[in-house]
Amino acid sequence: MKVGFYPGCSLEGSSKEYSKSLFAVSEKCGITLEEIKDWSCCGASAAHSLNHDLSIALPARTLALAEKQGLSEIVIPCAACYGRLAASQQAILNDKAILEKTEKYIDMAFTGNVQLLTVFEFLQKYIFPVADQYIVDKLNQKTACYYGCLLARPKDLTKLERPENPMEMEKVMEKAGATPIDWAFKTECCGAGFSMSRTDLVAKLSGRILEDAAERGADSIIVACPMCHSNLDLRRPEIKKQLKKDINIPVLFITQALGLSMGISAKELGLDKHFVPTGKAVSCIVKKEA
């Protein structure tokens, strides 16, 4: 089965392991991901901060390309990209004037008939029905499922059932044989795009998240957003300075955790690419009882 795929810039750079693990899991389950040809950047927070039209036009170009390519559904694993693409599609479909203006900017037709899938929706729809036959191991650890902002808000785009305390990721983790913990910071902001410009604020916000997960006994934190991952993983030294204590809980992408339960090797899932060693999470794994 084929599903359209929009990687976004981070998945080609700092979050290669997210892409790697998504492909590994999909391949295992017989799903082929078809990349949008010549896709471009969604514009991220820079575009909507500085130019409203640009923040709609940039995702629109990629969506129009997907339409041209005949993709009816695309999975957007990056939560930030998903947020921008979905917001752009919604703005265009809700307002004819915006549609006309945007079509002029991108010099392409736009119908908006591509269905956008978050990573949860993708897993739910394509991986879940067949997952059980491939899951051979139990993660056997307490996981703190972290959604951040863009997977939970705004609620009309993310389509979560309980936006203040979502359970979608927990369902995946339970399938993978982990024990999701109940914690308070699942949908708090990590500092997002301030990673470089205001590292101090990222350390503060991500620090709070990490601290709560640690205090409630999490063995690993599961994320589905490259920005959240890099803030919680790459920024660990700054967080350490902020909290004045060392928290070494590894941060895994949801697809890496799921991949582990399917017996895919740590290397194939890109677990060696993290800054915080992931050995602790891998060492918990046990064989699933038949």
Binding site: C9, G13, S14, C41, A46, S49, F194, M196, S197
Partner: peptide
């Protein structure tokens, strides 16, 4: 700094179509 980051970001994608973290960082 925040504005510079946003500008560096947009310039990078204007020239390349997508982001490259090395370029973005250097530009910033």
């Amino acid at each position: 700094d925040i504005l510079s980051f946003h500008k560096a970001f947009l310039e990078t994608i204007e020239k390349n179509g997508k982001l490259n973290e090395v370029w973005l960082t250097l530009n910033y």
